[in-house]
């Protein structure tokens, strides 16, 4: 029937393209999967239908998370009952919260503002409402010391990257 070389060329082009795509994905994933050394740890716990957070200094937050712009954070994500998934769409953070297991994901917020946190794994009755708010504040040095104080920045000023509330 048809001349088969055309098909061999076609397959060769497809395979070469896939290798290129695979390699470039591998190259980006390398950085996403290995958190920087000095990242601050934030414990994230999902349970049926709300999120709780615990900072390194022991401060606990329910339904709200306050982070500082420019500081790399590592989330230690776990769940207390069923599977959830910790997702900040604007910062492309997405990691499942599985009970009995601690998953890690790191991010360095680079723009202050108020972002949406939502659950991305079906977890029952109010899965669609399991949301929290992430406030990323400017890093404001206090009178000369390097210590950073968290003075919340007014929300209207900062526009989140992707338009959702």
């Amino acid at each position: 029937m048809g001349h088969s070389t055309v098909e061999w060329v076609y397959v060769g082009v497809v395979v070469a393209l896939l290798i290129y795509i695979g390699a470039s994905a591998w190259d980006v994933e390398r950085f996403l999967d290995h958190p920087p050394k000095d990242a601050k740890v934030v414990k994230v716990t999902g349970q049926q239908w709300f999120w709780t957070f615990e900072h390194e200094d022991g401060k606990k937050e329910l339904g709200e998370l306050h982070l500082v712009k420019g500081v790399p954070y590592v989330f230690e994500i776990t769940s207390r009952d069923v599977n959830h998934s910790f997702n900040i769409p604007d910062l492309t953070v997405l990691m499942d919260a599985v009970p009995g297991r601690i998953n890690h994901m790191w991010v360095m917020p680079d723009a202050s503002g108020e972002y949406l946190i939502q659950c991305r794994e079906y977890c029952g009755f109010s899965h669609y409402q399991m949301r929290a708010k992430l406030f990323v504040e400017e890093a404001i040095p206090v009178s000369g010391e390097t210590e950073v104080s968290n003075i919340p920045v007014s929300v209207q000023e900062a526009k989140p990257v992707i338009a959702n509330n």
């Binding site: 390699a23 470039s24 996403l32 290995h34 050394k37 680079d110």
Partner: peptide, 20 residues
């Protein structure tokens, strides 16, 4: 890619992911 700069570097996640 393997010999490129080692992992653990601080990058902005969303810029890299959306770029890809």
């Amino acid at each position: 890619a393997a010999f490129a700069q080692e992992a653990g570097k601080v990058i902005i996640n969303r810029v890299e992911v959306w770029g890809l």
